[in-house]
């Protein structure tokens, strides 16, 4: 069994100041890195002969409109099936420069996860083979999961404020 401490130390030894903000919410090793280092870290953990963290569980995005310069976060959950060890890696991006390299060469499953993240948040994955919208209609001109956009369908007539006491 791997311990969080062990993996964290190994990462710090290898990547130095590029990995920071180590946390353990509910026992899951969480760390933050820069977008330049994210793919090297994923590759390092993938090919590490003891950790073998080579299963991509999930990629998703988060929008923090109130933290300037770090409006978007891309979260990677990776998992080592042999060691049963999970790591969560976050990369923060600024809205003005919302680019991050793709993980598709490493994981085939990253393809749609990145497309979904692009569809919801507009995060651009550089080098992605086919970065298009996946769930929403192609004509959509905004990224609906960003906090400023409303959830409700704009065409509803019957939900007036008078009826709902708003």
């Amino acid at each position: 069994m791997l311990s969080n401490q062990e993996v964290a130390e190994e990462l710090v030894k290898k990547f130095g100041d590029d990995v920071y903000d180590f946390e353990e919410p509910y026992g899951l090793l969480t760390l933050t890195t820069t977008r330049e280092q994210i793919i090297p870290i994923l590759e390092y953990l993938f090919h590490h002969d003891r950790f073998k963290i080579n299963f991509l569980t999930d990629i998703t995005g988060i929008h923090y409109p109130d933290s300037p310069g770090q409006e978007f976060a891309v979260v990677y959950h990776i998992h080592s099936l042999t060691q049963n060890f999970r790591v969560r890696i976050k990369v923060f991006l600024a809205e003005a420069d919302i680019h991050i390299p793709t993980a598709t060469p490493l994981y085939a499953s990253a393809n749609w996860m990145e497309r979904e993240t692009y569809d919801f948040f507009g995060i651009i994955f550089d080098g992605h083979p086919d970065l298009r919208r996946i769930l929403n209609i192609e004509e959509m001109d905004y990224f609906p999961m960003r906090k400023q956009y409303p959830m409700e369908d704009a065409t509803r007539q019957d939900k007036t404020d008078a009826l709902f006491g708003r």
Binding site: I62, S109, N111, W112, M113
Partner: peptide, 15 residues
């Protein structure tokens, strides 16, 4: 604040 579902069908249907 944010809830994301890891949906197995979505992920393996790419194959």
């Amino acid at each position: 604040y944010r809830l994301h579902f890891r949906r197995p069908s979505f992920i393996y249907y790419q194959a």
